[in-house]
Amino acid sequence: MADDQSHDFGFDEELVRRLSHLLKETDLSEIEYETGGHRIRVARQINVQATAPAAPAQPAPAGGEPASAPKPGPEATAEQVPPGAVTSPMVGTVYVGPDPNSAPFVQVGDQVSEGQTLLIIEAMKVMNPMPAPRAGTVTQIMISDGQPVEFGEPLLVLE
């Protein structure tokens, strides 16, 4: 069941605002609320790196004013994929290192070269090492070791 973004789902700004407040108040990272077949999820990254400002939710219109700095704190996400994100090509289980006792392949702040292994995704008992699609710096890691991931789910950000 995918998050529904069809046209009849009126965007309830007030609800998002209330949930955002609730997030901050409770120090949770995510709230999901479902009613009448509509589902809304409000999430925030607790370990946001100070060096890596999150990208604006909407691309700035061409010729318009420069994108304003993102609001700190909660941010409504409808499974948004941040720019520079490396997404999962499959449904599976993600591993951050070659085995449970080894250091992770990459950490926030690491420079990686194209083709370097970032993560392993296991699906149907097949180990799939995920190569870096390009050279860059890892600015954010969105998953934890052993976590199930969906197709298209952002795994980490490479800038």
């Binding site: 180990m127 995920m130 190569p131 699609p133």
Partner: peptide
């Protein structure tokens, strides 16, 4: 499941599947 082979109840063989994927996926 999925592909361990047992002889008289004990594991006799294992299969390790890994992919090689290019940087463009």
């Amino acid at each position: 499941w999925p592909n361990d082979v047992l002889v008289n109840g004990r594991k006799v063989a294992g299969i390790l599947l890994e992919t090689v994927v290019d940087s463009d996926g």
